[in-house]
């Protein structure tokens, strides 16, 4: 017997479960619309404005210093596995490699993840070939050190000390090893530019490095450096999204304050439980969990609804095959 209640399908959207998906799709729309706008504007000869980022301006200075000293440039794309963060770090590193390659300055790119190592090697080789200096590419300049956190830290620290790097770029996901890298590089007098998407590590970088890209400046880097319309458009889309988030925060704070009343004095006689409103035996003071914003960000599911589903099933595979 098949009983399928239409409302059951899509139970994840009941209550306020749709809100997270709605916000995600809105952010995606902002980004795509702005990429389109940016392409249009570039076609007409215009360009979107990107504010000055000091840490990125210092890249040329750091590479120039390494060139003058004849010492290598160290680049580390964090210790996370291959993903958007690492790809963004490699984007920045390919820009650095392009400048370094022009002056035949040696580079060292150390990876803690095998997949990152493979992609990094191809990326750097591609940069050298695009610049017409493929013969200058040293395969050993991109290295896999270890996928264990502190073995990697020890390996990179050893390289910094032995090769006396002149400039160090730490971009990506870093954890406890961040300070080991930064302080070791500082001890050999290297100019350091760092950025971590891990907010817990940013203070360590700020304390020990010369320049730090904070938060989403890391993602703005490739747009800032190349001014490609797709990247600048995406950056403007991110800004729109941040404005939306800021408005949500402000409205949410006001709404919650209104729900709670002055000094949390408002009272309620109904509460939402299992996505249904229920009347309380006696009114009580409004709790944080009773507010609209709390409901919006903590969707409730109805267990009773889930138990109503009875669908047809196949005979089990093992029974059918006679095992």
């Amino acid at each position: 017997m098949n009983i399928l209640i239409a409302a059951d399908w899509g139970n994840q959207y009941t209550d306020t479960g749709w809100f997270g998906i709605f916000v995600t799709l809105t952010v995606c729309t902002f980004i795509l619309v702005n990429i389109f706008r940016s392409n249009q504007r570039t076609a007409k000869g215009g360009q979107l404005y990107v504010r000055r980022i000091q840490g990125l301006n210092a890249i040329d200075e750091a590479v120039g210093r390494a060139t003058e000293m004849g010492r290598p440039i160290l680049m580390i794309p964090g210790i996370s596995s291959l993903g958007p963060v690492v790809v963004q770090a490699l984007n920045i590193f390919s820009y650095i490699t392009r400048i370094a390659g022009k002056f035949a300055t040696p580079i060292l790119l150390c990876c803690a993840d095998a997949a990152t190592y493979t992609v990094a090697q191809e990326t750097i080789r591609d940069v050298y070939q695009t610049e017409g200096i493929g013969d200058k590419f040293d395969q050993d300049s991109v290295r896999f050190i270890s996928d264990r956190q502190f073995a990697f830290a020890a390996g990179v620290s050893g390289l910094i000390l032995r090769d006396q790097v002149a400039a160090a770029f730490f971009m990506g996901d870093f954890y406890a090893e961040s300070l080991i890298f930064a302080e070791t590089a500082n001890s050999v007098g290297a100019i350091q530019i760092a950025s971590s998407t891990q907010t817990t590590q940013t203070p360590f970088f700020i304390a020990s490095c010369d320049y730090v890209l904070i938060g989403d400046e890391f993602y703005a880097a490739s747009a800032y450096l190349t001014r490609q319309p797709v990247l600048t458009g995406s950056l403007v889309g991110q800004d729109w999204s941040k404005i939306m988030v800021a408005l949500l925060v402000i409205c949410g704070a006001l709404w919650t304050s209104f729900d709670l009343g002055i000094f949390h004095r408002n009272k309620t006689s109904i509460v939402k439980k299992d996505s249904q409103w229920q009347i309380l035996p006696a009114p009580r003071r409004v709790k944080d969990s009773d507010t609209f914003m709390s409901h919006l960000f903590n969707p409730q599911s109805d267990p009773a609804l889930q138990n109503t589903i009875h669908r047809e099933t196949l005979p089990s595979l093992t029974t059918e095959s006679g095992q």
């Binding site: 958007p84 820009y95 190349t226």
Partner: peptide, 21 residues
């Protein structure tokens, strides 16, 4: 939001990795 934008660009092949920067 930056991560989402980056992932979106990668998914739709809008990110020209290696040539982008």
């Amino acid at each position: 939001i930056g991560l989402l934008a980056m992932a979106l660009r990668l998914w739709l092949s809008l990110e020209k990795q290696g040539q982008g920067a």
